[in-house]
């Protein structure tokens, strides 16, 4: 095989790759475009690719009170992320650097909770929150999300902590650093990218969560996913406003994921893949 032949084949594969990638990406692109169309164009039988963009769809989404739902989503995602990171740091530290007895048991405990279906725990939570009047409370939802994300956060953080060279910690101990100092001053700065990545994964899961949000909130604490879900009962033409709303809802996580691409695999695999 000569080299020009090979490079021609390479160009062909590259072309095929781009076509496949664009086909795959098309629904996202289409959502983005439809959000900027007037409703009549978005809901037309024949698709329009070139048009004068308008913000009518976004206006309508906001008129449906979307800002409030976004606000709730943000509160739930941020609060739950803080909870799971604060609890995960000492736990991951104990499971990597300090080494409690039976590390394996503790790790399997965390992994098995991660695999616990939400369907198996939602009924008692619903009943308890209902009895004590805590349904439709955004901070309660955040606490549940904190528990949902804690196992992933622990595993992920641990995988970062395992990479801290033990000599550094030993040196700190020789200098007489207490445990708290050791964590806050020595270890944390070294694994800050790991903490950020774990926080990001936790934020993504909480922001996108639909099932618990649907069941544990109703109006005051309603988050964005169930709000979007309510479009299903819509009548008439609403593709432009739906696309605009979906774009706003998806954008924070899309951007976060794009920025943190490198850490994404590690988070998704709970730290198993680096």
């Amino acid at each position: 095989m000569n080299s020009s032949n090979r490079s021609a084949r390479g160009a062909l594969v590259t072309l095929a790759t781009w076509i496949l990638v664009l086909v795959f990406f098309f629904p996202v692109l289409w959502m983005f475009l439809n959000g900027f169309k007037p409703e009549s164009l978005a809901s037309s039988v024949n698709p329009t690719f070139f048009f004068k963009p308008v913000t009518e769809g976004y206006q309508l989404a906001m008129d449906r009170g979307m800002a409030g739902y976004l606000q709730n989503s943000l509160t739930a995602a941020v609060t739950s992320t803080i909870i799971s990171v604060l609890l995960a740091i000492p736990a991951a530290y104990a499971l990597s650097i300090r080494r409690v007895k039976n590390v394996e048991n503790s790790l399997s405990f965390f992994i098995s909770t991660r695999f616990m279906p939400l369907a198996a725990i939602v009924l008692p939570l619903f009943m308890i929150f209902k009895t004590v009047g805590l349904l439709d409370n955004i901070y309660v939802l955040a606490v549940v999300y904190g528990a949902m994300n804690l196992p992933v956060t622990v595993w992920m953080m641990r995988s970062f902590l395992l990479e801290v060279p033990f000599e550094i910690i030993e040196a700190a101990r020789v200098d007489g650093a207490g445990m708290f100092r050791e964590i806050v001053r020595i270890v944390l700065p070294l694994v800050l990218p790991g903490v950020a990545a774990a926080a990001l994964i936790s934020f993504i899961f909480a922001w996108n969560e639909y099932f618990l949000a649907l069941l544990l909130t109703s109006s005051a604490a309603r988050t964005t996913p169930p709000f979007l879900g309510s479009f299903v009962d819509g009548r008439g033409q609403f593709l432009a406003v739906l696309s605009a709303a979906a774009t706003i809802a998806a954008l924070p996580v899309i951007i976060a994921g794009w920025v943190a691409q490198k850490q994404l695999v590690r988070g998704l695999s709970m730290g198993a893949i680096k």
Binding site: A250, I254, W258
Partner: peptide, 16 residues
């Protein structure tokens, strides 16, 4: 571009 479908909110993806 390829990772975007995974990042998009599942409820939004289903609706789209």
């Amino acid at each position: 571009l390829m990772i975007t479908p995974f990042l998009i909110m599942p409820a939004a993806a289903a609706l789209i």
